[in-house]
């Protein structure tokens, strides 16, 4: 009973954060701000749902695989976001009301 309620709460929270990530990607004004919504909220939503999977199938193999997936997401999502952000800044996408640090545009050859 307690485990069911915990799993239901984890699944609902994860779904809510996935929804917020989608909403942020659709509605926010700028690539870098959209990336903020997609990486943080998306990773939290997926992590919570995979934690619910680990609690639901309470055996060693599934818990190991779910925790490995969560760790993999936590490691790779910032790297991918850094690469996309640098590429977007270099290509010169229009930024929304953002103060670019002095010298960053020249150093990164921003178009």
């Amino acid at each position: 009973m307690i485990a069911e309620i915990i799993i239901a709460a984890l699944v609902l929270l994860g779904g809510f954060f996935c929804f917020v990530a989608g909403l942020g990607v659709l509605r926010l004004p700028d690539v870098l701000i959209r990336m903020h919504a997609s990486t943080k909220a998306g990773t939290l939503g997926s992590g919570l749902i995979l934690a619910a999977v680990a609690v639901y199938f309470a055996d060693t193999a599934t818990i190991t695989r779910a925790v490995a997936t969560i760790l993999f997401l936590l490691i790779t999502t910032p790297v991918a976001a850094h690469l996309i952000g640098r590429a977007a800044f270099k290509v010169g996408v229009p930024l929304w009301n953002t103060k670019v640090e002095d010298g960053a545009a020249e150093k990164l050859h921003r178009k």
Partner: peptide, 27 residues
């Protein structure tokens, strides 16, 4: 998406969301 990085961000997030979809389907 007005530029290519917008589309890459959307694709990346769709992948992460489908990962969580796979978790839900496993349950």
């Amino acid at each position: 998406g007005p530029s290519l990085p917008d589309r890459i961000v959307a694709l990346d997030m769709m992948t992460v969301l489908i990962v969580s979809f796979c978790g839900l389907y496993a349950i």
